[in-house]
Nucleic acid binder design. Structure first.
Lengths: 277, 277
DNA sequence: TATACTAATGACTGATTGGTCATTTGTCAA
DNA sequence: TTGACAAATGACCAATCAGTCATTAGTATA
């Protein structure tokens, strides 16, 4: 085994047990039986290591489930096989699965967040393809909700064997979830995640709106809006963007003024992201 | 506001943004505008702080949803109101919700894990009560699965407004999830989480099996089992428990010998927990 | 054996960590 | 004004962190 692989395996185990932040490079090298210097011959930094781990396993995971969806011909069993493949991967690489689930939501490193996002989007795409193939027009309005339900199922049930390590019958589990997914696809009628809403989630991260763009949109809205409260709030916020001069609580209040006005919802959302509130 | 509250609010914000491990006491005190010493007048340690936060908010969250379930009389709307209450709490205390979701799976502190477990069990109890009241005998065999589906829904959809902070219509979301839960309760027929399985998850943490108990059970199994592979594996494992002398990979192999034998499944599971594999 | 090269080491750096404690500051009543 | 007490400080501690680099060990060619 290459030194790089050795380090990755040791790190995987420790990250799964203690978390990324709580694991030191020292611990990893001790566990791998190498010196600290040797670590930095294989990885430029601790961050590069976790990114390497995530790339390695996510690519495998995604190509696995993609293969199942693309190559399985019997529609009748596709859902079942999909879940089986997903859980099988999670069980096989349970240490990685733990890291993935834990580090998914909140992580300091900026690159990691967008990386996670990227892979999450790919998973969505595969699930979407599967749902469209199986149910077509029938799930036209509910398919985005079904994506989230499917991911929710996988997440919650993964906990069982990842964090309790009880031996489970993954075939039965997959069958049970396939039935649930089928039921929702066939009978669910309420749409919560519309196509527009779904797009708005998934376009956001790349946007990285600049100050100039924000100001331009604000000026545009000021022209559009008639109500004095909303208009004055926009003027003050524009000044604050150009040269920060308002306390957080005031900014928050001004944003509250906007959040319910139909024409200002979007700018309120953009500002909140831009100002990281 | 008391100093203790001030610290808790500052910490909440920073923990949500960076995570518990990645946030230092220094950062918290700077953010709160107090000295480092003052922090330790209110909290014995950083760990005590996070436990305090979790207790504070979880007690509120649980009593909120419990109140909804116990006091809402129109069964027709109960599911809807339940989800509304849960999401409302998550939105109101979004910083805490982020911490809860993130720190739920993996955390170093031993007390925190059992605390999280304890609250998770309480949530399960409330959901179970609701499901039994609404569907009674109809969900006799599927109710434990429904608990996990419900929690999965809440988890996945929470992500949307917690980590993308897109403004969402929580009423519509609750309605949509109520419909899904209803569909699953009415039509789902496959049971994955049986009552026995569910109990086995929730009894485990308190057990804390001792070395003596483990050895007793092993000796018992050795008598019971006829096959030489299983028997010899048990003998070696027993010696290893009494005085560790085998490498991890060998122990793993021995456990593999046991895991498929019907009479050895339980001991294999106990040993894996005891040895923290 | 001598030379040239890479692989690997671990002592080291400067920064930061959670936590302590002698000292200072602020606030009372006398 | 004094003295007593609590509240608050921040310099300080040992431990640990991520990361560096002069040095050594190991290996292959000549």
């Amino acid at each position: 085994m290459s030194k790089k692989q050795l380090i990755m395996e040791s790190a995987l185990e420790l990250f799964a047990k203690q978390g990324f932040e709580a694991t030191s490079v020292q611990q990893i090298t001790e566990h791998a039986g190498i010196s600290k210097g040797a670590f930095y011959l294989s990885f430029k930094s601790k961050d590069e290591l976790i990114i390497g781990l995530i790339d390695h396993f996510m690519q495998e995971f995604i190509s696995d489930i993609d293969h199942v969806v693309k190559n399985h011909n019997e529609d009748k069993n596709l859902l079942n096989e999909f879940y089986k493949s997903a859980f099988h991967s999670f069980q096989k690489h349970s240490d990685f699965a733990k890291i993935f689930i834990k580090e998914q939501s909140q992580t300091v490193n900026e690159d990691l967040i967008s990386k996670m996002h990227h892979y999450d989007k790919q998973i969505d795409k595969i699930i979407l393809e599967m749902l469209e193939r199986l149910y077509g027009e029938e799930v036209r309005y509910t398919k985005y909700d079904l994506i989230y339900c499917t991911k929710g199922f996988i997440h919650t049930y993964s906990h069982l064997f990842l964090f309790f390590n009880v031996p489970l019958d993954l075939n039965l589990l997959s069958q049970s979830l396939a039935e649930k997914t089928y039921l929702l696809a066939r009978h669910s009628e309420t749409t919560f995640i519309s196509e527009e809403l779904y797009q708005s989630f998934n376009e956001m991260p790349e946007e990285k709106v600049t100050k100039e763009q924000i100001i331009e949109i604000i000026e545009q809205k000021i022209e559009e809006v008639d109500e004095s409260t909303e208009c004055e709030s926009l003027v003050l916020l524009k000044q604050h963007i150009q040269e920060p001069n308002l306390s957080p609580v005031i900014v928050k209040g001004l944003l509250s003024n906007l959040k319910d006005h139909p024409k200002c919802k979007q700018i309120s959302y953009l500002l909140r992201n831009y100002l990281e509130l």
